[in-house]
């Protein structure tokens, strides 16, 4: 009887073909792909960072969840934006001094999930914004620095008052544009409520 010999490379290849899908998707939750590299790139003068993983449930529970929804002006998805989703905040350090923050959120888009990463100064004003992930036929237009750079200088108060002044870069992806604005607004609200805890929402209402 003929035997079919299996060489190591053959086995490895077959196995990797069928098992490699597990490697495609990393853990859910919007963490930086490479925090050491990414933080340094945005804050070249930084010497390190400290990561915080916090959920709405830990900080303020149901009451806070509703407060954030109200400020967002939109309902949270009960599955993908649940109260116990952990949010990663990166406190950027220069020596012992905090010089800024980096925070990312997942936001549903038309064709797939977006990962929106904003970096702010100590007061929460945006100094950098980029898409860590985006699925769209016009993804390149959204990810272009001409568009993302327009967010620099904006703060949560601008979003709450509706003073954004940024136009849709795409031709046919208006919904993804609106999702982007929602995502950045959500990002800033979470930064202020979960990390900075400076009651910006309360002060704007007054």
């Amino acid at each position: 009887m003929k035997t079919i010999r299996l060489s190591f490379s053959f086995i490895f290849s077959v196995v990797s073909l069928f098992f490699c899908a597990a490697a495609v998707y990393a853990a859910v939750g919007c963490q930086l792909n490479d925090p050491d590299r990414d933080v340094k790139k945005i804050f070249p003068e930084s010497t390190g960072y400290k990561s915080d993983f916090v959920s709405i449930k830990e900080i303020g529970g149901g009451g806070l969840y509703q407060k954030i929804e109200a400020a967002l002006g939109d309902k949270f998805d009960p599955v993908y934006e649940a109260m116990d989703v952990p949010y990663s905040f990166y406190k950027v350090l220069k020596g012992r001094e905090t010089i800024g923050y980096v925070h990312g959120v997942n936001q549903k888009g038309v064709f797939g999930g977006m990962q929106l990463i904003i970096s702010t100064d100590l007061a929460g004003k945006i100094i950098n914004f980029y898409y860590q992930k985006m699925s769209s036929p016009e993804a390149a237009k959204f990810m272009d620095k001409d568009f993302t750079g327009k967010f620099n200088g904006l703060a949560l108060t601008d979003f709450l008052k509706g003073n954004i002044g940024i136009s849709d870069p795409s031709k046919e992806s208006g919904e993804d544009f609106r999702y982007t604005l929602r995502g950045v607004k959500k990002n800033l609200i979470l930064l202020h409520e979960l990390e900075l805890k400076d009651n910006v929402l309360g002060s704007v209402k007054k």
């Binding site: 495609v24 038309v110 999930g113 699925s135 036929p137 993804a139």
Partner: peptide
């Protein structure tokens, strides 16, 4: 996990780059 990363539910769209298909 694929759905969780993309935040997809039935009825949502998926864009396949390379072949530009929705």
């Amino acid at each position: 996990e694929a759905a969780e990363v993309e935040q997809r539910k039935p009825g949502d769209k998926v864009f396949v780059p390379g072949v530009s298909k929705v």
